[in-house]
């Protein structure tokens, strides 16, 4: 188990009507740890990721972030969300704002930074994800991979304690996946705490400290990538791996 827990989920349950999408989830993510969540579609991995900043509410259980219980709706929740960066499958860049404005907006509104200070920081972050030249363009003028890198910069602009990635490369053309993964690899090397829901097994192998395998709303395995990929314990994981690693 992690020495210094940053995210803790205890006995978390969630239902969509009759459907029990998260069943007694227990998960601890340590500071600086990279946890990759994999599993078949509908296994609840995206939902799990979204409960951590309460984009999805839970029916029972406890979630704590850096020792603090996840607050209900309101100012306290907004404050906590600012500490948790999130990257979505569909990028969700603000369509009516330029790339720079996308990265600056929350710095100004939430962090209370001055506009020029925010824009300067946005410039640095865009440089870091290799998009400084595109700062004045609108999201629709960028490729998917570029948009996703902007989304990562936008999340980083809040100086979050942890980054959540909800299938960040699933909506991308194959040739754009790598540019996004490289940015994520770099983040992992820099010591960012990350929870990554993905189908990129290569990324899981190379960047993750732990792999969490989910099926039918449960965590089935929670092990190092080496162990998991070479010697999966459960039949469910063996079955899953045999299907995706065949080609």
């Amino acid at each position: 188990m992690a020495v210094d827990p940053l995210i803790e989920l205890r006995d978390v349950n969630k239902y969509y009507g009759e459907l029990h999408v998260l069943q007694d989830i227990n998960l601890t993510v340590g500071r600086g740890e990279v946890v990759v969540v994999i599993g078949p579609s509908g296994s609840g991995k995206s939902t799990l990721c979204r409960t951590i900043n309460r984009l999805e509410t839970i029916e029972s259980g406890h979630i704590t972030l850096d020792g603090q219980a996840l607050p209900a709706e309101g100012k306290a929740l907004a404050k906590l969300r600012a500490e948790v960066g999130m990257v979505f499958q569909s990028f969700n860049l603000f369509a009516h704002k330029t790339v720079r404005q996308n990265v600056s907006l929350a710095q100004i509104k939430v962090r209370g930074r001055k506009k020029d200070e925010s824009d300067k920081r946005s410039g640095e972050l865009l440089e870091r994800v290799g998009l400084a030249a595109h700062a004045e363009k609108f999201p629709a003028q960028l490729s998917g991979g570029q948009q996703q890198r902007v989304a990562i910069a936008r999340a980083l602009a809040m100086d979050p304690k942890v980054m959540l990635f909800d299938e960040p490369t699933s909506a991308l053309d194959p040739e754009m996946i790598n540019e996004v993964l490289e940015v994520m690899q770099q983040l992992a090397r820099d010591g960012m705490t990350m929870v990554v829901v993905t189908h990129e097994m290569g990324f899981a192998r190379s960047a993750a400290n732990r792999v969490v395998f989910m099926a039918d709303g449960r965590i089935v395995e929670d092990r190092t990538p080496e162990d998991f990929f070479t010697n999966p314990e459960s039949d469910r994981a063996k079955d899953f791996l045999s299907k995706i690693l065949k080609h």
Binding site: A78, R81, V84, N92, L105, A151
Partner: peptide, 8 residues
């Protein structure tokens, strides 16, 4: 969702 996830 993106705006809320940024703490707005």
């Amino acid at each position: 969702e993106a705006a809320r996830s940024l703490g707005m």
